[in-house]
């Protein structure tokens, strides 16, 4: 055992990190509406209850729709930017790439408010799922670029040159050589963007129209104490879904790293 005190500290810190995550399923299976200890008894009624809430199903479908479109757009934009930044040199490269990555650190409320101003006050358009998609794509694209850049960076340029020498067009070389090699990175970034969009609240809260997304729906439910246990059950299911999606993403990311012959330096985010 190396690092005695540091190890004890690290384990204490992990307990701190996992405290809310452990409570989530505990209250989801707790037979009582009050969120306090001691726990009452075991029940699965809150999960059964979820199946009967119409508004929830609508919100879930809406969220999945938004997340799918957002992830697709972010990955397409991400491919363009990642490919351009790793393969080519162009004027103002650093400032352009910097500007594209800015949403990563910008407070979300600023993104939300500025889009709201433009959509409602300047363009006078109605808020809808598409306004949420516009905002989500903005914050997801930097994540896609970060993952895709490492996929593109590992590529050996001679593959592409060989293909062109052997008579492929530029596009053909990209489609037949580059794309298959970076496919794991594409899948991984798609899943990450999907998950981020599914969980994002602030931008959705400002920009959603008449149909709420899942987090906006949950936000509305948190005000009613009797609705909380069902929300905990919902949260447990969402956590499970996120973990499955992320495990798949991590699997593809590692395969991508192995495919281009890099060495793994441990996980995204």
């Amino acid at each position: 055992m190396r690092g005695g005190w540091l190890r004890i500290y690290a384990i204490t810190y992990l307990v701190f990190l996992y405290l809310p995550v452990i409570l989530l399923p505990m209250f989801a299976f707790n037979d009582g509406t009050v969120m306090a200890f001691p726990l009452k008894g075991f029940t699965t009624q809150w999960f059964v209850q979820l199946a009967g809430i119409e508004a929830l199903h609508g919100a879930l479908l809406n969220s999945v729709f938004i997340a799918t479109i957002t992830a697709t757009l972010s990955v397409l934009l991400g491919i363009c930017a990642a490919r351009a930044s790793t393969r080519f040199r162009f004027p103002f490269k650093a400032p352009i790439m910097g500007a594209i990555m800015v949403p990563l650190v910008l407070p979300e409320i600023i993104v939300a408010v500025s889009l709201l101003v433009v959509v409602v006050q300047v363009l006078d358009l109605p808020l809808s799922a598409w306004t949420v998609i516009a905002g989500h794509t903005l914050i997801c694209t930097p994540f896609a670029i970060a993952i895709l850049s490492s996929a593109f960076q590992g590529l050996d340029q001679s593959f592409e040159e060989a293909a062109i020498d052997l008579g492929e067009t530029r596009w053909g070389a990209f489609r037949n050589i580059i794309l298959p090699l970076v496919a794991p990175g594409i899948i991984a970034s798609f899943l990450i963007c999907f998950t981020i969009s599914l969980d994002e609240f602030i931008i959705a809260f400002f920009l959603t129209g008449a149909e709420p997304t899942l987090p906006v729906y949950i936000w509305g439910q948190l005000r009613f104490p009797t609705k909380i246990p069902a929300v905990m059950a919902l949260g447990t299911l969402m956590l499970l879904a996120s973990l499955i999606i992320l495990s798949v993403a991590e699997f593809y990311r590692r395969r991508g790293v192995a495919r281009v012959g890099g060495n793994d330096s441990g996980g995204f985010l």
Partner: peptide, 23 residues
């Protein structure tokens, strides 16, 4: 240059312009 433009234009339209509007 051409390749980065879709992403750059998106950021310009949906971030720079809205921030300018807020200003």
């Amino acid at each position: 240059m051409l390749l980065v433009s879709p992403t750059a234009v998106y950021v310009l339209l949906l971030l720079a312009a809205p921030l300018a509007a807020v200003f």
